[in-house]
Amino acid sequence: MVTINASCANCGAALKAADDTPDDQMIVCAECGTEVGRYGDIRKAMIDKGRSEIEGAVADMIKRFNKR
C-alpha cells in the first residue's frame, strides 16, 4: 500500500491518506479541522509537482552532460 503524505497549510500537521481513498473524499486535518481538499485533487497536485521536479532534474543532467 502506498501512503501519500502532506502537511496542513494551516497548522503544519501531517496529513495522511491511503492510496485506496476515494478521489472525492474530503481530507480534513486531524489537528485543526481544516478542510484541505479532495483526495483526488491533492494526489494529482502531488503527482504533477513530482513529475515537474523529475523533468527539471533530468533537463539539468542533460545540460551538464552536453557541456562535456
Rank of each mutant, 00 (worst) to 15 (best):
Gly40His: 05
Ala17Leu: 11
Thr34Arg: 13
Met1Val: 12
Lys67Asp: 02
Arg38Gln: 15
Ile27Ala: 04
Asp20Ala: 04
Gly50Val: 01
Arg51Phe: 09
Lys44Glu: 11
Lys63His: 00
Gln25Arg: 12
Lys63Tyr: 04
Met46Tyr: 00
Thr21Phe: 02
Arg68Ser: 14
Cys11Trp: 08
Val36Leu: 05
Lys49Thr: 11
Val58Met: 11
Gly40Asn: 02
Ile62Asn: 03
Ser7Gly: 12
Lys44Gln: 14
Gln25Met: 09
Lys63Gly: 06
Gly12His: 01
Asp60Arg: 11
Arg38Glu: 15
Ile4Leu: 15
Ile27Gln: 04
Asp20Val: 04
Cys8Glu: 02
Ala13Gly: 00
Val58Glu: 09
Met26Lys: 05
Val28Leu: 01
Ser52Ala: 15
Lys44Thr: 10
Lys63Ala: 12
Val36Asp: 08
Glu55Leu: 10
Ile42Trp: 02
Met26Asp: 06
Asn66Gly: 05
Asn10Leu: 11
Lys63Pro: 03
Asp48Asn: 05
Thr21Trp: 05
Asp60Asn: 11
Asp24Glu: 14
Ala57Gln: 11
Tyr39His: 03
Tyr39Phe: 15
Ile27Glu: 06
Cys32His: 03
Arg68Pro: 03
Glu55Ala: 13
Glu35Pro: 00
Arg43Asn: 01
Ala17Glu: 08
Gln25Ala: 12
Pro22Thr: 07
Ser52Val: 01
Gly40Met: 00
Glu35His: 07
Cys29His: 01
Cys8Lys: 09
Ala45Ser: 09
Arg51Tyr: 08
Lys63Trp: 06
Arg64Cys: 10
Asp60Ser: 10
Cys29Trp: 07
Cys8Asn: 07
Gly33Asn: 07
Pro22Tyr: 04
